[in-house]
Amino acid sequence: MHQKLSAPRRLPRRLPRRLTQLYVGLLLYGLSMALFVRSDLGVMPWDVLHQGLARHFGLSIGAWTIIVGAVVLLGWIPLRERPGIGTVSNVLVIGVAIDAALAVLPEVHALAPRVGLVVAGLLLNAVATALYIGARLGPGPRDGLMTGLVRRTGGSVRLIRTGIEVAVVLIGWALGGTLGLATAVYAVGIGPLVQVFLPRLTVPEHRPVPAEVPADTLAA
């Protein structure tokens, strides 16, 4: 007869770390957006839309970030996507963070510092993206829209994502958003950079273990 040893029913899920990582990532994401705005060399693709809406209709970029995120989140309903706490937090926190950062970051006029802002914004955005995705508490509303469309239409991730971002960039540019070299740099560079940081910043997933484990099994 096997001797039974007590073992925890479930390993710790590291929720405090995941929540901390989520909100640090979202705050840094908002800061990275503000760095692109202050560079005046172009903004991230979705921010071309946010900036265009802000210039055309008023309100701040952060306010439009929240409004657009909420509208996109409503688009999850027919796609039957399920938001998590990270999804809702993404809608609210990033918009507040970019407005707070823009309130303290001064305008920059010399070209060299503006290029530096783009480089810093790109690197910071990659780290921030890896942080909030790696927390595994739900995708951002725009990411969920993409994956939902991929699942429902059977299209490729590359085609669906490119189509969405081209559409929002063109609409934002028509409304007065800043489309520039930094927009292209972001589009080309963000994927490889996130791929570097994401494995290092993803919180490991713990699996449940049996309540009792035979001693000879553990010894083996």
Rank of each mutant, 00 (worst) to 15 (best):
I77C: 05
I77S: 05
I77K: 10
L79N: 00
L79Y: 00
L79K: 01
L79R: 00
E81D: 08
P83A: 13
G84Q: 01
I85C: 10
G86Y: 03
V88L: 15
S89M: 07
S89G: 15
S89V: 07
S89F: 04
N90D: 09
L92W: 10
V96N: 06
V96F: 14
V96I: 15
A97Q: 04
A97T: 06
I98A: 06
A100D: 13
A101R: 02
A101Y: 01
A101N: 07
A103T: 04
V104L: 12
L105Y: 12
L105M: 15
P106N: 04
P106H: 05
V108E: 14
V108T: 14
H109T: 15
A110P: 11
L111P: 13
L111A: 15
A112N: 02
A112W: 13
P113C: 10
P113M: 10
G116T: 09
G116F: 06
G116A: 05
L117W: 02
V118F: 02
A120C: 13
A120F: 08
G121F: 07
G121M: 10
G121S: 09
G121A: 12
G121H: 09
L122Y: 04
L122P: 09
L123M: 15
L123R: 11
L124I: 12
L124P: 14
L124Q: 07
N125E: 11
N125S: 13
N125G: 12
A126G: 08
A126I: 08
A126Y: 04
V127L: 12
V127D: 11
V127R: 00
A128P: 00
L131I: 03
I133R: 11
I133F: 13
G134C: 12
A135W: 05
A135F: 07
R136Y: 09
R136L: 14
G138L: 03
G140D: 01
G140H: 00
G140T: 00
G140F: 00
R142L: 05
R142P: 01
G144D: 02
G144V: 00
L145G: 03
L145Q: 01
L145T: 02
M146A: 05
M146P: 03
M146G: 05
M146K: 00
M146I: 14
T147H: 06
G148P: 00
S156H: 08
V157L: 15
V157T: 14
V157Q: 10
R158Y: 06
R158E: 11
L159Y: 09
I160Y: 01
I160Q: 07
R161M: 03
R161G: 05
R161K: 14
T162W: 10
G163H: 04
I164D: 01
I164W: 00
V166K: 01
A167T: 14
V168P: 08
V168E: 00
V168K: 02
V168F: 02
V169P: 14
L170R: 02
L170P: 12
I171W: 01
W173Y: 15
W173M: 10
A174S: 15
A174I: 04
L175F: 15
G176L: 04
G176E: 07
T178I: 11
T178V: 13
G180Q: 09
G180S: 13
T183E: 05
A184W: 08
